[in-house]
Design a protein around this nucleic acid. Sequence first.
DNA 1: GTTAGCACTCTCCTTTAAGGAGTGCTAACC
DNA 2: GGTTAGCACTCCTTAAAGGAGAGTGCTAAC
Lengths: 340, 340
Amino acid sequence: MLVDDRKLKILQAVIADYISTAQPIGSRTIAKKYKLGISSATIRNEMSDLEEMGYLEQPHTSAGRVPSERAYRLYVDRLMQIRNLPRKEQEIIIRELGERMDEIESIIRKTARILSQLTRYTSLVINSNLIDCRLRHIHFIQLDSNRLVAVIVTDNGIVKNTIIKTADTVTAEYLESLTRVANDKFGGMTIEELNHCIASEDYKKLAYRYSQLDSLIPMLMEGLSIVGGDDVYADGMSNLFNFPEYSDISKAKSLMEIIEEKEQLMDIIRRIGGKGVVVSIGSEMDNVYMKDCSLVTASCRVGGREIGRIGVIGPTRMEYDRVVAVLEFISGYITGMMDK
Amino acid sequence: MLVDDRKLKILQAVIADYISTAQPIGSRTIAKKYKLGISSATIRNEMSDLEEMGYLEQPHTSAGRVPSERAYRLYVDRLMQIRNLPRKEQEIIIRELGERMDEIESIIRKTARILSQLTRYTSLVINSNLIDCRLRHIHFIQLDSNRLVAVIVTDNGIVKNTIIKTADTVTAEYLESLTRVANDKFGGMTIEELNHCIASEDYKKLAYRYSQLDSLIPMLMEGLSIVGGDDVYADGMSNLFNFPEYSDISKAKSLMEIIEEKEQLMDIIRRIGGKGVVVSIGSEMDNVYMKDCSLVTASCRVGGREIGRIGVIGPTRMEYDRVVAVLEFISGYITGMMDK
DNA sequence: GTTAGCACTCTCCTTTAAGGAGTGCTAACC
DNA sequence: GGTTAGCACTCCTTAAAGGAGAGTGCTAAC
C-alpha cells in the first residue's frame, strides 16, 4: 500500500496532536480539528490502513490512535519543517553562554542549563574522548614546599591540572629546567605517544637525570587520562515530570538511573555518533530502558575534531522540530566560539 | 510534663521503626516488637502524652503515630548513637576518591557520586565562595596566533583558566614579560584587592605600557569571579524514589526543582554554615519546599578556611546516624587530602 | 499505676455499575 | 468505487458502595 498525500496529512495531524496533548486521538477529533474536507468515517478507514502499515498504534480497541516509532521516524525525516530558532531564544543563549571561552567545565554547566531551560526537556552535555589531542604545553607551579601544580594545555585549548606531591623541596631552577625539558620532550605528543615514550629507554635516561620525573610522569598521565575519559553531564531532570509519560514513578526512576549511571548512556551516544543533529527514536537506540525515549544529539567540532556532543532526552512524543532548532543553534554557537 | 526514661524508650522505638518502615506505628506493634515489659495499653497512654508534648503526630485518628520534627531533633541531639563508618565503606571511599588531588571539578563529581551511592540519598557538593583566597600565580600560554590561555593558581591550589583573545600576534618575549609583571603586580592579592588595584592610577600606567593588559585584566577578573562564585553539584536524584515520601510526583518534582535551581538551596546552605556535621530538619530550614526534608551537611576546610561543603538531602525520616557517619568520614578524608 | 476489653473511627482495597470515547461494520449515497 | 451516516460493540475510566483491618480512647478491673 502507498502512503498517499491524504494519508500523510492524517498522519501529520495525529502526530501533531499527540505531541501536544499526549492523548490517543480518534477519527472524529481529526475531522473536527483539522479541516481536511473528509468525514470521520473516511478518516477511520485511512487510519485503519495506517495502522496496518505500522504508522499508528492502538493502546486498546476503542481508544484513539497513537503514532508509532515508525511514524516519528517518517515525521523527522520527511514531514518536519526545519525552523529557525526565534530571535528571542537566540539572544538568551548568547547572553547566557557569554562570548568568552572559559573552562570547559563552566561551559558544560551553562550549556546544560540553558539547553534544558529552553527545550523543557532533560539536557545532556558530553565531552568527548580527546585521546588524540596533543600536548601543547606543560607548566609546573610550586604551591608549597612539597606540592606542585602541573598544568597541561592541549592543542585545542583544553586546560587540565593536577597536584603532585614531591619527595623533597624543589628549587625554582629545578622547576624551570623541568618545565623546559618536559615541554621539549613531550610537547606535541598525543596521549598514546606519551604512553609509548615513557616505556622507552630514552625516557629512562631522562628520568634518571630528573629523579622526580619518575613519579611525575605517571601522575601526569593520570591527569591526561582525565582529559581522555569522556563524561556526560545532565541537567533539567525535573523536566521529566512535565510529561505524563513519567507520571509512573518506576518509569521516571529507571530513566533517571540510566542518566545518572552514565555508562549505558555514554554507550548509546557513542554508538550514535555522526555529524550535525541526529535524532534517535526509542528502540533505535537498542536499549530496553530507552525504548520509550527519544534522544536528539548534536556534535560540537573544533578543527574537524569532535570535542563534545550536546543532547536532549525525553519521551518519543517529542517536539522534534523545536528541539532540533535549539540544538542546531547551540552546537553551532559553541563550535564558533571555540574555533574562532 | 517530663520526658522520663520510659517515654524516651518508646519515642526511640517509634522513631527507629518509622525510619525503617515509613509506616505509622501503633501501640500494639511497639509492645510486640520492642520488649519494653509494658502492655500496649500503657504504651497507648504514654504515646498520648508524647503527642500532647509535640513529639508524636497522628496522620488521622485510628492510624498509628509518626515522629514529629521535634522528635527527630531530640533523636539527633540526644538519642542517636554516633557510629563509626564500617571498614568496608571506608575502603570504598578511599578507593573511589583516590589519593591524588586532581581538579576540583573531578573531586566534586567523584565525591557526589560516592556520597549518593553510600547513603542512598541525594548528595550535594558545594564549592564555597573563595572570595578571600589569594593569587599565587598567573601564567600565560600561547595557544595560537591570537589566543592565550591564562592559568590562575590560588594559594590553596585551585587552578582556573580562561582563554583570552589578543588583538594582534604576541611574541614570546612579550608573553614572558607580561607573565612576570602580572605576577609581580597581582601575586598575593585577594579578588577584592585586585578589583581595587585595577581602578588605581598605578594600574593605568601599567596598562599603558602593556597595551593589552587593558582588556586582559577584566577578562582575568571574570575568570576569578568564577573561582569566587559558589555552586552546588547534585547527584543521586533518582535515589529520591527509594522513599515512599516521593511516590507523589508533585512532591518529587518540587524537591528536584529546588535542587536544580540551586539558588534557594545555596541560600539555605549558606544560612546553615557551621563547622563539622550539621543536621537541619524540615521547617528549621525555613523554606516551604523543604519542610518535609532533612539536610545534613559537613564542611571541608583547608587551613581553617572552608573550601566547600558536602551534604545529603532526603525525607525527614532519615537514617541520621548512618548519614552523619558517612559525611564525617568523607569530609575528614577530603580535608586531609587537600591539607596535606 | 497498669492492663484487658470493647466500641468507634478512619483508611484502604475490592467490587460493582454507569458513562463515555472510539472503533469496525454495514448499507446507502454520489 | 470512493465516501458517508448509523449503530452495535468494546474497553477504559471514574465514582460509589461495601467490607476488612488497624489503631485509638475510654472504662472498669486488677
